[in-house]
Amino acid sequence: MTDILILNGPNLNLLGQREPHLYGSETLADVEASCRALDLGNLTFRQSNHEGQLIDWIQEARGTVDAIVINPGAYSHTSVAILDALNAFEGKVVEVHISNIHRREAFRHHSFVSARAEAVIAGLGTEGYRAALRWIAGTDD
C-alpha cells in the first residue's frame, strides 16, 4: 500500500471558517475523513502555519513515504525553501489549491512548488485532495 504524506500550509487550519466563498465550508478534519474513506493508501495528515515545520516534515519524508500531496497555501508564492526541500524528496509530489489561484490576485499566479510537482490541481475545491490521491494510486512508479 502506498504511503502518502498530506501537508497543509498556513491558514488551512481555518478551513471551513475562513472565506467560505473561496474555500467552502468543509473543515480540514472533513477533508481528512473523506480522503481516508477512499482507502487509497496509508495517509499521514499534517498542517502547520510555520514554513520551517513544513520543511522538516518534507525532509523526514525522504525514504519513508512514496508521495507528498501539498497545499502550501501562501507559501506557494514565496517559498524557495519549500521548493528546495521538495527537490530533495525522491517520490511523487502533487500540489493542491482549493481555489483557482490563476483567477485570483496576480501575485498568486506563480507557484514555486509547481516547478517540482508532477501534477498541480487548482480550483476543484476540497475535491482536489481526493483527485490527487486517485492520481497517485493510478500512476506507475
Rank of each mutant, 00 (worst) to 15 (best):
P20C: 07
D30T: 05
G52P: 08
A29R: 08
E26P: 09
Q47F: 02
P20K: 00
F45P: 03
N49Y: 11
Q53A: 14
D39Y: 05
N42C: 09
Y23F: 15
S48F: 07
D30L: 11
L54M: 04
C35D: 08
L28I: 15
D39K: 15
A33M: 09
G41Y: 11
S48L: 07
C35G: 10
G52M: 05
P20Y: 02
G24W: 09
C35N: 12
A37D: 10
A33W: 06
S48D: 01
Q53K: 05
R36H: 08
V31I: 15
E51N: 04
A33E: 11
G41Q: 12
L28N: 10
E51Y: 04
L43P: 10
R18A: 08
D39T: 06
C35Q: 12
V31M: 12
P20W: 03
A29E: 12
A29V: 03
L40V: 10
T44P: 02
S34A: 13
T27V: 00
C35K: 11
E26S: 15
P20T: 07
R18D: 03
S48E: 01
D30G: 06
V31Y: 13
A37L: 05
L40C: 09
E51L: 04
G24I: 04
Y23S: 09
N49I: 11
L40Y: 11
E19A: 15
L22C: 02
T27I: 01
